[in-house]
């Protein structure tokens, strides 16, 4: 018994609809519909363990800007997006902060850091 699963690639604005042929034991036997090789690696990942970049903001001290934009340095499991938010809500950064500075190391034990995407000058 095989079945067809569909995922939509979010790797770029094309939004390819990728078909996965999945065998009885959950093994993927065929991938089609992707227009590039990124899609070929994205589809099984999205089917088994979808991941996303988390983008958000954290509070600042001693700055005229109330917020600093941040993101996960790499994609994290999709199901960890919402649980990550209370962690970020507890963070206050102080200037100076440079783009790429680590704001939260090892977010929820994922091994992925949260980094600054904006600058705070002191």
């Amino acid at each position: 018994m095989t079945r067809i699963e569909t995922v939509i690639c979010i790797g770029c604005p094309m939004g390819c609809e990728i078909k996965l042929t999945v065998g009885a034991k959950g093994e993927i036997t065929k991938i089609s519909g992707n227009r590039c090789k990124e899609g070929k690696s994205y589809a099984p990942q999205e089917y088994k363990n979808p991941v996303r970049i988390l983008t958000a903001t954290v509070k600042t001290a001693n700055s005229s800007r109330p917020l600093l934009p941040v993101r996960s340095a790499r994609p994290i499991l999709k199901r960890l997006l919402l649980p990550s938010m209370p962690v970020l809500a507890g963070i206050t950064v102080t200037a100076p902060v440079r783009v790429g500075d680590v704001v939260v190391p090892n977010l929820l034990d994922t091994g992925v850091d949260v980094i600054a995407t904006g600058e705070l000058l002191s």
């Binding site: 770029c12 604005p13 970049i53 983008t55 958000a56 903001t57 934009p69 941040v70 993101r71 783009v99 995407t117 904006g118």
Partner: peptide, 18 residues
């Protein structure tokens, strides 16, 4: 603050502020 900027120009997935 979301990502998806620069995929074609920089070949990187950047946020707006980056």
């Amino acid at each position: 603050v979301h990502n998806g900027f620069g995929l074609f120009y920089f070949h990187e997935d950047l946020t707006g502020p980056e």
